[in-house]
Computed example of a mutant assay.
Amino acid sequence: MTTLKSKLHDDLTAAIKARDELRSSTLRLTLTAIAKEEVAGDAARELSDAEVEKIIAREAKKRREAAEAFAQGGRAEQAERERAEGELLADYLPKQLTDDELDGLVAEAVEEAKAGGAEGPRAMGAVMKIVNPKIAGRAEGGRVAAAVKRRLAG
């Protein structure tokens, strides 16, 4: 079984051979972030695919935020590159949920929380606890929280 990290390494090697500068530099930076995480803490360790996925998601989010900042600063070329890097990393993540899919999962979690006695705006924590494992990396936290707030307010 190939791990996500070894797939990144294989893709990096292929990108270098193909002289794909964007892909190779993006994967190199991501693998560096993974390596840093592996040696952080008391003992070096091998990360699980889920942990590697979280790092890739964090790196992709950084790229999206940077793209926005560059676009607002009138630096279209850098914004485009950051966007391209973010999209490249998104290919390694689980397919993101559509708004409808997300709303459906949130609605189920709200019902579940109600059954457990949690209702109204105060139920936010209970609903997030129920919905987060079901979403598992397929939607950004901010997006999930916004959907939960909408549902609880409605």
Rank of each mutant, 00 (worst) to 15 (best):
A76F: 08
E80I: 01
A69L: 14
E82P: 00
L47M: 09
K54E: 03
T2K: 07
G74M: 13
R58P: 00
N132Q: 14
G154K: 09
E140Q: 02
G116E: 06
A35G: 13
R23A: 15
D100T: 15
R83W: 10
L152M: 10
A107Q: 15
P121R: 13
E101A: 13
V144F: 01
E68P: 00
V106G: 08
T98P: 13
A145N: 03
K62T: 06
R64C: 05
F70C: 00
G117I: 05
A67V: 11
A145F: 05
G41D: 06
K95C: 08
G120P: 09
A71T: 00
L93D: 06
A107H: 12
G120V: 11
E59A: 15
V144W: 03
D49T: 13
E59L: 11
T13N: 11
I55E: 07
P133V: 03
E112R: 06
V110N: 05
L97Y: 10
K7Y: 01
L89R: 05
G125T: 10
L93N: 05
L8P: 07
Q96C: 02
A118E: 06
A113V: 01
G125C: 00
E119S: 14
A115E: 09
E82Q: 12
R122L: 10
A33H: 07
I56K: 09
A33S: 12
A113L: 02
D10L: 12
A35L: 08
K36D: 15
E82G: 01
G117Q: 03
A35Y: 06
D11N: 08
R143Q: 11
S25I: 07
G104D: 13
V131E: 03
A57T: 02
Q78R: 05
R81V: 11
S24G: 02
A50D: 09
K134R: 14
M1A: 12
D42R: 06
T2D: 11
R151Y: 05
V148A: 03
K61V: 01
G154S: 14
A136C: 02
K62D: 00
R19D: 15
G73W: 08
M1C: 06
I16C: 08
M1P: 06
D49N: 15
L8H: 05
Y92F: 13
R75E: 13
R122G: 14
E53P: 04
E65D: 10
R81T: 10
R143F: 00
K129Y: 05
A146M: 05
L29E: 15
A126V: 11
K5Y: 10
Q72Y: 06
T98V: 13
A145L: 11
R143T: 13
S24M: 07
K36Q: 15
A126R: 09
D11A: 05
